[in-house]
Design a binder for these strands. Structure first.
Lengths: 204, 204
DNA sequence: TATTACATACCGACCGGTCGGTTTTTGAAC
DNA sequence: GTTCAAAAACCGACCGGTCGGTATGTAATA
């Protein structure tokens, strides 16, 4: 095996072990030794690949941000009409609230660290700004097309993203009570109803 | 001064110092010594009043829960019609998202700890269940009165509380971008629009 | 005097990070 | 293809310091 491949493999094992341990116990509680043990790697190898514990954390954050970016781009593009793309992006929120449950503790860690470390803050805030911007842009399109009421796009985008965040969080915290089937899509649908011009229940 | 009063004062000082330190630095990062220093109290006094660090944390949580209970009861009661009470309770969400910003780090701590310690989990989940229940009850009233569309009360309540949680969180994380004036009320209004029967924008 | 309230010194465990040394890989000379 | 030295990857013992909690004592109240 080439050295490069070995090195990359070790690095990858450290990262995936880190996300597993951080998810399980939080940033402060998880020790570097924990991560090393879970990754079958020595402490020396750890500090050979990363300058500090926080560096690993930030690397994870940036990796997640890249994924998110990709997802938004692929969903928000496409040539269809604004409302279609909007509800597709909104539907993504519902999916995330179900699929992403296991990752929520990690998001909580991101938020918590963001309040303390400025460099983490900037990276953490970014995805939400992008989400809101993507929604606002779509809503603006919808308004110009005449398919949505003339609301403030930014406020509506904030409302949508807020509901997404809240759904994910409550679903993770209290799956039994706050995460019935289709809860996400149902809730989002209620909000889109408030946005629609001449809502469909009286035009159909 | 009586012994009782002195004891109560010390206890109160520990609690308020704890909430200040936990808010500032998080649960794990804040040491018992930190709290003692901020409260001008010795470690002996600390462990005389509380059996452990976690016990202080839970005491804070329960205190907050009591306040919340009081608030919900006073707002959700009152003799007016359901929609009035509903929007008043919803308006509270908007207020919380502005006033409660400084407390958000503490809520994050609650959620984080809830994922690990079962006894914390139960206490943490409770307020959201009560919030949802209060909303669902009001929405049910509104539907029976005919002032709201016949949606699923539980789903609508989940949507409302989710938006509240999301607004609070984003407002705290990114005040500059995610917390324009009236953002909370504006966002909630959009959602209530989706709930209203024969919304005013197409009857006017 | 008995009990409650508080103070201080201290313990063992643990943690992030370092460091000297060892193994593995690499690339170039032969 | 073999050799070999330098570089990269890796190892694990160790260090200074911190932390939650305890043990033991003193001062104030009842």
């Amino acid at each position: 095996m080439t050295n490069q491949k070995r090195s990359d493999g070790t690095r990858a094992r450290i990262l995936s072990a880190a996300v597993e341990r951080f998810t399980h116990g939080g940033y402060d509680t998880t020790s570097v030794a924990d991560i090393c043990a879970a990754a079958n790697v020595s402490k020396g190898a750890f500090y050979h690949h990363f300058p500090s514990k926080q560096a690993v954390f930030i690397a994870l954050l940036e990796r997640w941000l890249d994924e998110l970016d990709e997802t938004i781009r692929s969903v928000a593009a496409g040539g269809e009409s604004a409302p279609v793309r909007l509800s597709r992006l909104a539907g993504l929120v519902g999916q995330v609230s179900e699929l992403g449950t296991g990752r929520v503790p990690m998001f909580l860690e991101f938020w918590r660290q963001a309040a303390k470390a400025p460099e983490v803050w900037q990276v953490t805030v970014e995805p939400y700004r992008r989400f809101r911007a993507a929604f606002a842009s779509l809503i603006g399109d919808g308004i110009r097309e005449g398919s949505l009421r003339a609301v403030d796009p930014d406020a509506a985008a904030l409302a949508l993203v807020s509901m997404g965040v809240g759904l994910v969080l409550q679903g993770a915290l209290d799956p039994a009570e706050a995460q019935p089937a289709d809860a996400g899509e149902h809730a989002v649908a209620l909000l889109l109803e408030g946005l629609a011009r001449g809502s469909d229940h009286d035009t159909k």
